[in-house]
Design a protein around this nucleic acid. Structure first.
Length: 608
DNA sequence: CAAAGCGTTGAAACG
DNA sequence: CCGTTTCAACGCTTT
């Protein structure tokens, strides 16, 4: 039998659980009565260079880390969040050795990369004789358990989630746990110092976020950080200029708890909240809670959110007040999250893409992802998709940059880029527009843009929602299509939302605000903005030479024409009925099934 | 104007 | 006659 030290030296590994309240893993770690307790964050180069992360999310993460670190220091002046700069697989064994660690504790993570990483770490720890404790705390239910309760299949509907959830504690997640009132000391300064430990270096090749680095990247030089103090990275170290971070949304557990408490106080809001009735055009304040980024970084516990809302529901029920029903109410929103986590858990890496994914319908989109084999051949700097149509590529770029010429779409995309958040229904609008209701571009392109810009980016929810909106999984009523004109008018009848994010249209009458190209040229002149060109820098400059100060692009296509095209194409693709794991998709012969594998000359003949 | 698909239900068929 | 299986019809899909 192995000798167990009586005084545990506990390494607590924070990842997407940047909080002290309701953390089963942290509570367990402290219940070991550690003689030494070291809460760390590993600044993982995988996330830094190989996940798409825009400036707003970087700041949100740094906010969250700073807030947590401060909370630790408040509990114990010797404590903070100790940030180490290196990949976990190489740096953790160094820490175990240098600090004489006996226990490693962390919260179960959810996406495929994180689960692989954790499995690797656990194997290493076992070899080194470190005891590892993992607790579920990121979701209401253990996603693996939801899958097991659904006959091992990914859950694809709300009723399946409820049924599978009912088998766990009768559908009632555990109540939240209080934050600790104290934390033990780390080692003394001398023993904490890792100056003598060799820095392993990092692989920077294929940096997906290189475009944001306007300053020198100084994140990695030593394990203890450039200042040697285990400090939280700064935006300057990451190479991001302050002026790139425009959004108003800030991170941190104390911010999250304050926001939640504010909503909980408003019992009418909590009790009557129905997502479909909240406006995607509302800003300052927005119509939903905006707690999603806090759920992502774990600065808010989902169980705390769930039970605080349930308690308001119970109170209202006693008072004989109606509560909004599942799935449109707040708990329902959290259950959708569970559905996506469980689908991800069931499929692993395959969940993230079409290729090899049995749950996702195959559609002959433009800008299809390259296969893993193609990407392997082309190396880490490869373009991730095929440009099968220069026109579709142009549409995709214009969508991304908010210059489609449809003000509703452009306002949303600009809000997304500037602030890192848009309302759920706004996401529906732009996602439908890019895929089945406009551009007919692969949902995987859209998911990559959302991954980059959303401060609340969560792999499972992002991928799941893109499948939903593109009608490739979870949802299939492709004939229900969002119109960028009438849907905008419905939610923003005065056009205020459009005017805020497309300020060049600020003076346009509401009659034309969603279709500015229909405004007479005299009015366009009067309102100080000509509808012309494609919104690119070149096209704007050209107009300026002609004396037009401001321009807004013409619509990049006729929407009704595109809607008809897309619906016919979706109907065709549905009737062909391929899925991501079908042979034709894996070996590229799907083109034949769709009749687009022929030589161009043959195709022309056929068209006649 | 209709397009899809899942789960439920209840009647009919079956053994 | 009864219990079981099958299948078509129907209602519901967060927006």
């Amino acid at each position: 039998m192995k000798h167990k030290p009586t005084t545990p030296v506990v390494l607590y590994w924070h990842r997407t659980d940047l909080r002290l309240h309701d953390s089963p893993a942290l509570t367990t770690a402290l219940s070991l009565k550690p003689s030494v307790f070291i809460p760390i964050w590993t600044w993982d180069p995988h996330y830094v260079y190989h996940a798409r992360v825009g400036p707003n999310r970087w700041r949100f993460l740094l906010d969250s880390q700073k807030d947590l670190s401060k909370s630790y220091t408040t509990l114990n002046p010797k404590q903070k969040l100790w940030v180490v700069r290196e990949g976990p697989m190489t740096v953790l064994p160094k820490l175990w050795k240098a600090w004489g660690i006996t226990h490693l504790v962390f919260e179960q993570d959810t996406d495929a990369y994180a689960r692989d990483r954790d499995e690797g770490v656990m194997k290493l720890a076992e070899k080194e004789g470190i005891e590892v404790i993992v607790k579920v705390g990121r979701t209401l239910f253990d996603p693996d358990m939801l899958v097991r309760n659904n006959q091992g299949k990914p859950v694809v509907s709300m009723s399946q989630v409820e049924k599978a959830g009912d088998k766990i504690n009768g559908g009632r997640p555990d109540r939240p746990i209080d934050a600790p009132g104290s934390v033990p000391d780390p080692w003394n300064e001398e023993r904490m110092d890792l100056s003598g430990v060799e820095f392993g270096g990092v692989e920077v090749e294929g940096d997906l976020n290189a475009a944001y680095r306007v300053e020198e990247d100084r994140q990695y030089s030593r394990i203890m950080g450039p200042k040697g103090d285990f400090g939280i990275p700064t935006l300057e170290e990451i190479g991001i200029g302050e002026d790139q971070v425009e959004g108003p949304h800030r991170g941190g557990e104390s911010v999250a708890l304050k926001i939640l408490a504010g909503y909980i106080e408003d019992e009418e809001y909590i009790g009557t909240f129905e997502k479909p009735n909240t406006s995607p055009a509302a800003f300052e304040p927005q119509s939903t809670t905006l707690l999603s980024p806090h759920l992502h970084f774990g600065s808010l516990s989902v169980r705390k959110f769930f039970w605080d809302v349930q308690d308001v529901f119970s109170k209202r029920k006693k008072e004989k007040k109606q509560n909004a029903p599942i799935p449109t109410n707040l708990p329902g929103q959290l259950l959708f999250r569970e559905m996506y986590f469980a689908a991800q858990a069931a499929l692993g890496y395959k969940f993230q893409r079409t290729y090899g994914n049995k749950m996702v319908r195959f559609i002959d989109w433009h800008l299809q992802s390259k296969t893993p084999e193609e990407l392997e051949k082309e190396g880490p700097t490869a373009q991730p998709y095929h440009v099968d149509s220069p026109e579709a590529e142009e549409w995709f770029q214009r969508w991304r940059e908010g210059r489609t010429g449809f003000p509703w779409i452009d306002a949303l995309m600009r809000q997304l880029k500037q602030e890192g958040w848009i309302h759920h229904l706004g996401r529906h609008s732009v996602a439908c527009f890019l895929t089945r209701g406009g551009c007919y571009v692969s949902w995987e392109r859209g998911a990559e843009v959302f991954e980059e810009w959303l401060i609340d980016h969560e792999m499972a929810s992002n991928i799941g929602n893109w499948m939903w909106l593109s009608c490739t999984a979870f949802y299939n009523q492709y004939y229900r299509c969002y119109s960028p004109i009438s849907f905008g008018k419905k939610w923003d009848p005065q056009g205020d939302f459009v005017r805020k994010y497309c300020p060049e249209l600020a003076k346009f009458d509401k009659k034309y605000i969603f279709e500015p190209w229909k405004a007479p040229i005299a009015d366009q002149r009067k309102w100080g903005c000509r509808i012309s060109g494609d919104g690119s820098v070149e096209s704007k400059e050209k107009m300026q030479e002609q004396g037009e100060e401001q321009t807004y692009p013409k619509p990049m296509f006729d929407f009704d024409e595109r809607r008809t095209f897309c619906m016919d194409a979706m109907k065709n693709a549905y009737s062909i009925g391929l899925h991501g794991d079908d042979r034709e998709v894996l070996n590229g012969t799907w083109r034949k099934a769709f009749g687009i594998d022929e030589e161009p000359s043959k195709k022309k003949q056929k068209a006649k």
